[in-house]
Design a protein around this nucleic acid. Sequence first.
DNA 1: TGCCATTGGACAGACAGTCTAGACACGCTG
DNA 2: CAGCGTGTCTAGACTGTCTGTCCAATGGCA
Lengths: 217, 217
Amino acid sequence: MATRAYRAQRRSTRSDATRERIMSAVRELLAEGSFHESTVEEVADRAGIARATLYQHFGSRLDLVDGICDTFAVNPALLAIRETVELPDPEEALADTVSNCVRFWSSEDAILSQLYGVSAIDPAAKDLVDRQRADRRGEMQRLVRHLHTTGRLRSGVSERKALALLLVLTSYETFRELRAAGLSDRELTKSLGETGRTLLLSGSRSSAGATGGTRPA
Amino acid sequence: MATRAYRAQRRSTRSDATRERIMSAVRELLAEGSFHESTVEEVADRAGIARATLYQHFGSRLDLVDGICDTFAVNPALLAIRETVELPDPEEALADTVSNCVRFWSSEDAILSQLYGVSAIDPAAKDLVDRQRADRRGEMQRLVRHLHTTGRLRSGVSERKALALLLVLTSYETFRELRAAGLSDRELTKSLGETGRTLLLSGSRSSAGATGGTRPA
DNA sequence: TGCCATTGGACAGACAGTCTAGACACGCTG
DNA sequence: CAGCGTGTCTAGACTGTCTGTCCAATGGCA
């Protein structure tokens, strides 16, 4: 049986191309917001293949969503977060992390809005959302620790509260809400960054005396 | 044909009771998170009626969700917001509005988490979410204007940004995120209120009593 | 030629929504 | 009280759509 093992490799190129066509179709439909009204037949048509072929690549409708979710793992903005949370300068760490979150949400917005939407009923989407939420929580936890150990966490702000706030600031829903309010990605990043700095960081060698000044009481 | 003047009014009590049984069943299933996996038959079974009867009260599966959504219109916390946004004291207006938002989200959390979840694919749910979002936006807009006209909007904060921030602070998603982080409703209200005051309000007689006393730092 | 991805189509099972005939409860009138 | 009219509920049959499975046939590529 091992006699021709190498062949499978070569051959698989064709199969891979088909798989790619399917994924593209799913991405398109997702981006158009019509994936969830589409039948498997329509997905196959869009990909220019037979329904049976689709089922050979993806066991079920949910597997299609699963496939899409896997592609996020290599998103550069997402990968960058792992590093920015531990940048030496806490202020920079905070700002860059926020910035990268916005970058990620923005880059996949069309698709995420659909996936997040159905996470309540679609197991595969729910998996994705839960995993992303857990990942983000882990990163933010690291960021909070970093702020704490470098002594830049504002006095009176517990680590638990700091984490909660960071989660809100960097959540996809907040991104959506602000974008819906008409803010551009740039404004959004700036606004979220400032808010975080204002509420979380102590001292204020930075902008506007944002924090300290406001609460003399 | 007109021989009898019939009183549908009297009769309707029975019909109303049936309708109520159906709604209860839907609420239960929604709260258990299993509505979206349930067939119409199962909903009917849960309500203890025939499937045909259900279809007489609600034309389709979506109408069931619609029915639930209508019940939110009379939620006391939601109604209260209309008044709190214009309380004479801006500080109080802000705090009470935030508080009422939390109260509303909290009172219907089990069901909203499901409805918001499927809003991307369920037209009825989407309608609800869109309507709620529009309503909230309207109220927050009024609140911002109020803060502005009374001169309490912090300098450097445009009305547009103030609105965006308020929308984030009072959004269901933020509520969910903070609750998931382990905050109680009380902590949540306090935290959101403080954040709003810190970021939006100028001056700072900061009502040490009402809410402010909580931050001795 | 032989492998393998692909294809078209048949098929079973599940479910939404429609329809009909009949059972039942209740209000009205005599 | 008796009985008719009316609206509600019920049981079940039926259609159409969609998912997921299976298989025999096709076609490209080494």
